[in-house]
Design a protein around this nucleic acid. Structure first.
Lengths: 228, 228
DNA sequence: CTTGATGCTTGATGTATATCAAGAACGATG
DNA sequence: CATCGTTCTTGATATACATCAAGCATCAAG
């Protein structure tokens, strides 16, 4: 476990805490800890009681759901700097709605929910940040549902690739996948085999080339028109 | 347009306003109005600037998304008493993420966003209620994504039916669909034809009987075991 | 009682994707 | 370098679902 001032430093980086007074920060720091997870370690599981929420300092965390049928679906891959499980704070049934597993060694800041709620009550600014955060997440989910329902697998993959591109103007682009293809496939609700095949046909059409986890898009426009 | 005290009455029914003082209520009422929509009328469209949010007093409103391919997907059918489009309040880009269309004649309470934000700033209680509301919605969405990804069409339909049942213990149950089968199908991301066929096979197996919009479930347990 | 509109059902056919199974590439480890 | 495990690819086959097209039911309007 890290020293107190380290924790405060991590807290300060957390957008949800950026409006707090030094006193409030110290209080929260006393009830927070930095956890170190090994690759494959489970941070929490679906339906477990949720007394904390988190911010990822380093590494990658996979959030997934297990269906009644037993299949797993990756909802999100948390990247460093992102908060997660904070929406649970206000649920009636205070349990985690997803599983969280470290995809690699991780450092995670864990904050006590009860303490935070107490402080939240005294900080309007923080309330507003949290509301903005949740509102953003809602928006993300609506888009997510779009992708999963309106389109076929090819389109979902193409859409995801296009979202990764920062420079929209250039005719070509390079994308480095942040996770394995299997996990990305699950996020897009595609089987690994199908995922592979789609990339193949796209490269056969000269739209992109694949080299391990880096994908070079040769014709952004062409890819954009490739809707179904 | 209704009289002021009618509006205040409607506001009081809105969960998000239940923590407000009479003064605050009056202020909001001055900046709210009751809208009357005809069947098929569009309340707002995707990407339109959102300066208000709503609560449905009577009728039904369909919230849907239009994909790039042109297909429509129903995200939700708003029922009387439900607030909607309130999550937009905190978005950076203040535009509606969905289309809203009246499925029948509707009465809608429309509240000015700017005024509400101002009041929110003065009412912690309201902040907390709003956060709880958004958190609830997030939870719903996670479940929604489950349904759309983890299962096949039959399972999605069965799952939806089971959710409608209140009395979990009884062996049989009656369900009255609140919308047309077409719209329900779209919500579950199933084509109308497939929807029809699934109901047929389920009734052939003696699990339920269909009579217009009322569905009589004869074997709740059996239906529950019918995963995929 | 017609007529037409609308929502629902049914059948025939096609296609996207899942599944099963095996092999290839790659990185880690001794 | 050899070996093992993992991730990815590829092929053959199966199937769920979409699509197209037509028929039926219900209900309101003439």
């Amino acid at each position: 476990m890290k020293k107190r001032h380290d924790i405060e430093g991590e807290l300060r980086k957390h957008i949800l805490f950026s409006a707090l007074t030094p006193d409030q920060l110290t209080l929260i720091a006393r009830h927070s800890r930095i956890l170190h997870l090994a690759e494959g370690e489970i941070l929490f599981q679906q339906e477990q009681p949720a007394e904390r929420f988190f911010r990822l300092c380093s590494g990658q965390i996979k959030l997934s759901r297990l269906s009644m049928g037993g299949t797993e679906h990756v909802i999100e891959v948390v990247q460093p700097g992102q908060p997660f499980a904070e929406a649970v704070l206000f649920m009636k049934k205070r349990v985690f709605p997803v599983n969280a597993e470290a995809l690699m060694p991780c450092e995670v800041l864990a904050v006590d929910s009860a303490i935070f709620l107490q402080i939240l009550y005294d900080s309007r600014e923080t309330c507003f940040r949290l509301m903005a955060d949740m509102s953003y997440r809602l928006h993300i989910f609506v888009n997510e549902i779009d992708n999963l329902t309106l389109q076929n697998a090819t389109f979902r993959l193409v859409h995801h690739l296009l979202q990764q591109i920062v420079d929209c103007k250039s005719r070509t682009a390079d994308i480095e996948l942040v996770t394995s293809k299997q996990i990305l496939a699950s996020r897009l609700s595609i089987k690994p085999e199908t995922f592979s095949r789609i990339l193949k046909t796209l490269s056969q059409r000269g739209l992109l080339t694949v080299n391990g986890r880096t994908i070079h898009i040769q014709d952004v426009q062409g890819l954009r028109c490739f809707g179904s």
